[in-house]
Design a binder for these strands. Structure first.
Lengths: 211, 211
DNA sequence: TCTTACAAGGGGAAATAACCCCTTTTTGTA
DNA sequence: TACAAAAAGGGGTTATTTCCCCTTGTAAGA
């Protein structure tokens, strides 16, 4: 009986290489490949590598992050089982990975025993949702007032998180200052904030910009 | 000839456990212990465990972080060799670890080969400074125009990172709005920024406020 | 004792941000 | 195709921020 095949996608070489030893130490599991970021992995898949049973996907990566990669996987290989791996447990990120098809979300401070369990469950049952994830799922069901930001709004927010004036932002986006005024007012209402400072804080908290 | 002993201090169990496999795979090295945070490690040291040849110390930990731990080690066991391990390479943090006595600073995306090299160099020569660290050291020597923020200024910055107006901030600090005006202008000059947005970005980048 | 430095406070003006209410154009879709 | 919704643009006003230059008291150094 052949072993369950795992591919690791993580930019922290020290971690991915080490993790591959850990996975290798489990009976029934073997690492079939290690990639440094989503782009490398996708290139390899396009190049025709054999898909593994489970992909372990880091969320925070510089080149092509977990969320982008997850989207691509969902579109092109919707049945691929993926477990997200991350150090951060903020609701936004977790939910985005799950809604894009991740079958599990593990924090990097997970006990190796739980980790093995998660691998086994995802392989056999198809998913593994920790208490944290379940909590977020329930939360989402209850108050489903999700805030949707449009592309253009996100562009505006990013520029608002600089020392540019709104006039300069308008120039940068090739829009009239008055249109920018509209964007701002919309966002203030939608995000329940009152000032540009609030917008900056929101943007950073929700990782729309990174500093 | 006995092996070189390593202790790992890192809150990410998945990482520390995995890393211990990696270290174990190197000839001449063995892991003598794994601790979840600085507090656990220090407690163990106080309890009389044998100090290892090298401590691998994570910088970002929830309970007692790398910097605090490093300070304690410097005070109590100044000859202990420590290599800092971190995902972040911002100058502030790197320099604080180095000035507190870390013999090396490695990023978690380091190649395992470099990692092994670093272990060997720290053991034999006593230190291992990557290009990044050397760069920061030189930088520190050249422009030693460190920015010092006064207590009251920090208080002001924290309030500036909210949706309060300056008038409200003045009330909050029991000062005249005009004094606040002075604080702001001082900071704008000192930090080479032009707007309150710039101040907020500075504050977050330098961890004066956390969001 | 005589600076020097700095915290605190201030006047007044110009630029920018925030607010409210409105029109035109584009777009999606029933 | 026609209707509704969303995007873009606008007028006019007020509040806030930013800027420059100034005074006073106080405490530490030379």
């Amino acid at each position: 009986m052949s072993k369950i095949k795992i591919i690791i996608v993580d930019d922290h070489l020290l971690f991915s290489q080490s993790l591959s030893y850990l996975v290798g130490s489990f009976e029934n599991f073997e690492v079939a490949g290690i990639y440094n970021n989503g782009k490398e992995f996708i290139t390899a898949v396009k190049g025709g590598i054999k898909l593994p049973d489970i992909v372990l996907l880091d969320v925070n990566m510089p080149i092509m992050d977990g969320i982008e990669t997850m989207k691509w996987i969902k579109q092109n290989h919707p049945d691929q089982k993926v477990i997200a791996l991350s150090v951060n447990n903020d609701e936004d990120t977790v939910m985005r990975m799950i809604t894009n098809g991740a079958k599990g979300y593990l924090l990097k401070d997970t006990d190796p025993k739980n980790f093995k369990e998660a691998l086994e469950e995802v392989y056999s049952r198809g998913f593994y949702y920790s208490e944290m994830v379940s909590g977020y799922l329930i939360n989402k069901l209850n108050n489903d007032n999700k805030i949707v930001l449009k592309e253009r709004e996100i562009e505006f927010i990013k520029l608002a998180c600089t020392e540019k004036t709104y006039k300069e932002i308008a120039d940068g986006m090739c829009l009239s200052p008055k249109t920018i005024d509209g964007y701002r007012e919309n966002l203030f209402q939608k995000l329940e904030i009152k000032t540009r400072i609030g917008l900056v804080l929101y943007a950073i908290k929700h990782k729309i910009v990174c500093i």
